[in-house]
Computed example of a mutant assay.
Amino acid sequence: MDWENPYHEINKGCLYEEDGREHMNLEQDKKLDSFLLGWSRGVNPEGEDYGEQAFEELSWNNLGYRFGLLFDQTSRELKEEMYYWCVKEMNE
């Protein structure tokens, strides 16, 4: 995180060149595990830094990674709520 310019980092976290996520119904959770794994890696980016590659094509995993970078550790319930919100928004 660039603490001298946090707005740049937050805005960068919202950008991508291609959306590679698979469209799903709200009842489907087959990408939830990938999203949660990405979130965990975002909370501890020293272990695995996705780098600039994460900002080229959006996937469920690197979307979770971005949220982990921005929001840090939180409850599983909130992470799941964010996932299902993203699925809903993607389908509208």
Rank of each mutant, 00 (worst) to 15 (best):
E22W: 06
E57R: 13
E92V: 07
G38T: 03
C86V: 11
P45S: 03
Y65R: 02
F67R: 03
Y83D: 12
D72S: 15
M1K: 08
P45L: 02
S59G: 11
K31Y: 13
W85D: 15
S34G: 12
N25F: 12
R21Q: 12
Y84W: 15
N44V: 03
W60T: 07
E9M: 04
R41S: 00
L36Y: 13
D29M: 00
Y50W: 14
G13A: 06
R21W: 06
D19R: 07
D29R: 01
G42T: 02
G13I: 01
G47L: 05
K12M: 03
Y65Q: 02
R41H: 01
N91Y: 08
Y65L: 02
V87C: 09
E92A: 09
E92T: 07
R66F: 00
N25P: 05
L70I: 08
R41W: 01
E27L: 07
N44L: 05
D33F: 07
N5I: 01
G47Y: 01
K31L: 11
G68D: 03
E56S: 10
M24H: 06
H8K: 12
L58K: 13
P6A: 01
L37D: 00
S40D: 06
G13W: 02
V43S: 07
S40H: 03
K88C: 15
A54R: 02
E27P: 00
E81A: 13
Q28F: 04
Y84T: 09
F71R: 10
E17T: 12
E81M: 08
L37H: 00
G51V: 01
D49C: 08
Y16A: 10
L70S: 09
Q28N: 08
E80V: 12
R41F: 00
G20N: 10
D72N: 13
L78V: 15
S75Y: 08
S34Q: 13
N91H: 11
Q53P: 06
D2A: 11
A54P: 10
L63A: 09
S40G: 02
M82Q: 11
W3S: 12
N62W: 10
Y83N: 08
N44A: 08
V43L: 11
R21P: 07
L69E: 01
A54E: 08
F55M: 05
W85L: 14
K79V: 00
Q73A: 08
N44Y: 06
P6C: 01
F55Y: 15
Y83K: 08
E18Q: 14
W60V: 05
E17G: 10
L32P: 06
E9Q: 09
R66E: 00
F35D: 05
L32H: 06
L69G: 00
A54T: 04
K31G: 05
L32Y: 05
Y84Q: 14
E18G: 03
E22H: 10
E89C: 08
C86L: 12
Y7G: 04
W39N: 04
E4R: 09
P6W: 00
L63W: 09
F71H: 09
Y7F: 08
C86T: 15
C14Y: 06
Q28V: 09
L69M: 01
P45D: 02
M1G: 14
F35K: 05
L58P: 12
L63Y: 07
N25W: 07
F35E: 06
Y65S: 02
N61C: 14
W39T: 05
W60Q: 03
K88P: 11
L70K: 07
W3V: 04
M82C: 10
